[in-house]
Amino acid sequence: MSKSERPSRLFRNLNAKVASIPMILTALVVFVGGTAWTVLYSFTNSKLLPRLNFVGLDQYYRLWATPRWLISIENLLIYGVISLVFSLVIGFILAALLDQKIRFEDTFRTIFLYPFALSFIVTGLVWQWLLNPDFGIQGVIRRLGWTSFDFDPLYNSSIVIYGISIAALWQGTGLIMCLMLAGLRGIDEDIWKAARVDGIPMWKTYLFIIIPMMRPVFITTLVIIASGIVKVYDLVVAQTSGGPGIASEVPAKYVYDYMFFAQNLGQGFAASTMMLLSVMIVIVPWAYLEFGGRKRV
C-alpha cells in the first residue's frame, strides 16, 4: 500500500463538489459575504455610492433619532404582536374545529388557505378597496342608516397599522391553521381515547394535554410568523404606501427608501443591520433549542 496511490482528498466525490458549487457560492458569497458587507458598510457614511469611510456608530445614532424609524419600529411591534397572537389563536381554533371529523373538511380548508396563495400586493389592494371609507365597509353601513359609523383604519394615522394587520391575518392565518392541523393530526389517537375514558372534557383535553404536547409545533410556527413579520413590506406598499403621512411605515420600507430613493446608503445599511439583529434574537435561541441538543438538521 503506497501512499501515492491514494487519491487526493480534494478529488474524492469531485462530481458532488462541482455540483454543489452554486450552493457553496450562495452560502458564502451572498449569505455570509453579503451580510458581512452590509454590516461593515453600515459603519460608513456612504451616500449615493458605497464608500469605506468609517464614521463609527454615527448612522445608528442618526437612525434612532429619526422619527420615521421610531414609528417604523413601533408599527412593527404592534403589527408583530397582533399577527402572533391572532394568527396563533385563530389558526389553532380553526384547526381544532377542522379536526372534529367534520363534513366538507377539504372545502373549508381550501377556503381558509386560498388567500395564502395570493401575493401581499393583491391582498393589500383588495383590503384597500374593502376599507375604502366612501365605498367600502364604512360607506355601506353608513348608507344603511348608521351615519355615525366609523371604520376607516387606512385613513386614520392612529389605527392604520391595525388596518394593515387585518389584511395580513386574512392572508396568513390559513397557513398557521394548516401547520396546526398537521400538528393535531400527529397526535396519537390513543391520547384522545384515554382522555375520553378518563372523562376529561374536550376543552380541558386541548388545554392541558394536547396544546402542551404540541409545543414543538407552536415554537416552529412562532419562528415562521416572526421571521415573516420582520419582512413585512409589500403589504404596506400596496395598502397605504406608508401613509397617511408616515403613520404606517415599517423598517423594511425604511431600508428600501433610504437605499434607492433617499440616496443615503449608510442609513439603509444601518437599518437593515438592525433588522438582522432583531431576527437573530428570535432565531438563535430557537436554532439552539432545535438543533443544538440533538445532531439533526
Partner: peptide, 19 residues
C-alpha cells in the same frame, strides 16, 4: 359515555399524557 361505563382502558401506545 366511556367515563360512565365503569371501565378502565390500557392502550398499546400507553397514551400517557407526556407533559
Amino acid at each position: 359515555e366511556p367515563k360512565d361505563r365503569g371501565i378502565g382502558m390500557v392502550f398499546q401506545s400507553y397514551a400517557l399524557y407526556p407533559q
